[in-house]
Design a protein around this nucleic acid. Structure first.
Lengths: 205, 205
DNA sequence: TCCTTTGTTAACCATTTGGTTAAACTGTAT
DNA sequence: ATACAGTTTAACCAAATGGTTAACAAAGGA
């Protein structure tokens, strides 16, 4: 153990605990007491640092959704060639999500459970996925005849589905295929290459 | 309006209301009072028909997960040729889910939030997805050389990802692409054909 | 050393929530 | 009419839960 134990500040301890509890139980299922226990502090201290449950949740959710979304844009809006862009996206995206495998389900579920609140408070504060440029790029390639005729939107949905879904359905996939954590991790590493290959095989002429 | 209004029994009213509330708010977020209101009855009547929240939830969750899972098996384990099987799966699966678009997120989220409880109580009561035969079939086709060399497991994950994820990420997809309910429905109808085409284009020789 | 600010806690409070009870209502057979 | 079973409700209860308070400890500056 050459890891030096650095004293985390109380605020950091709370945020780490809140992240863990919120992501595993969701906003409705999380208990302030659980978070306090997890952080090893008194419950009142939570309210000293963060006014209330909603504020604390918002902080965690913001961080989480920022991890889930904005990395997408920088790739989608870049000037890379299409195939390279697809490869890049899979690589980057799966790498980030592998470090936070429960994050996509958490974010998508909370969005779904309270869309109005989500949109108003969280949405416009950060850049949201703008797939426009990607869609146009696909259309251009189709017209140029460099790839098969395919609906850009369906291609986009296929791409993000194959990257994100395995994390959302992690428990199901692991159980039906009898995979432990390590095996799952390895499969996701493989998918960084498998998905682009699968897509490009499908659309290249 | 030539629809005849048939009086639903109280039990049916409760189940319908519970389904609606549980699926939109999840187990933890659902309130017994909400369900009672939705059903237009007194809260105590809920406990008259279903002992407690857990029992009521279990009933709804069972029904939901039975809709999400077992239809898969009959197709996966049939003797259809591979391409036909893929076409059949997409067609059937998306049709069912289009009638219950929020069901996949609900089920996957609850599984994730309480895996132990899920496994013990719900899991073995019903047949669970057995993709074995599908995987073997893919491997056989690869060896025969009728399709490209591809990992059967990745192909399977790709298939279910592209079918299920759009429902899980419905809110996100609708928002980023500015789609109303009807447009989303139509895109999912297209996907019944688009997904098999996309897959077969990728793996056929 | 005293005083002020910041951090931390135990005890407490008000509301929400799942669940119970006992009474009342409804239809049906006697 | 009466009795009886199943159904429905208003009122109630206890536990859980988010949040507050007041007292206390620690740190630092005058």
């Amino acid at each position: 153990m050459d890891k030096i134990k650095i004293e985390k500040s109380t605020e950091e301890k709370i945020l780490a605990a809140a992240k863990k509890v919120f992501i595993s139980k969701g906003m409705a299922g999380a208990r302030m007491q659980d978070i306090a226990d997890e952080a090893g502090i008194n419950k009142a201290l939570l309210h000293y640092y963060f006014r209330n449950k909603e504020k604390l949740f918002e902080m965690i959710f913001m961080e989480a959704s920022q991890k889930l979304f904005p990395k997408i844009n920088s790739i989608f809006e870049s000037d890379m060639p299409l195939f390279e862009k697809i490869e890049n996206f899979c690589e980057e995206y799966i790498t980030i999500m592998s470090e936070n495998p429960y994050l996509p389900l958490f974010v998508l579920n909370e969005i779904n459970q309270d869309p109005e609140n989500f949109m108003s408070k969280i949405w416009d504060k950060q850049k949201f996925p703008r797939p426009q440029k990607f869609l146009e790029q696909v259309e251009k390639e189709v017209k140029k005849g460099t790839i098969k005729k395919i609906s850009p939107l369906h291609l986009l949905i296929n791409l993000i589905s194959m990257c994100i879904f395995p994390f959302v359905g992690k428990a199901m996939i692991q159980f039906t295929n009898d995979l432990d954590e390590l095996q799952f991790r390895n499969i996701m590493i493989q998918r960084k290459k498998e998905i682009p290959k699968f897509i490009i095989d499908s659309i290249k002429k």
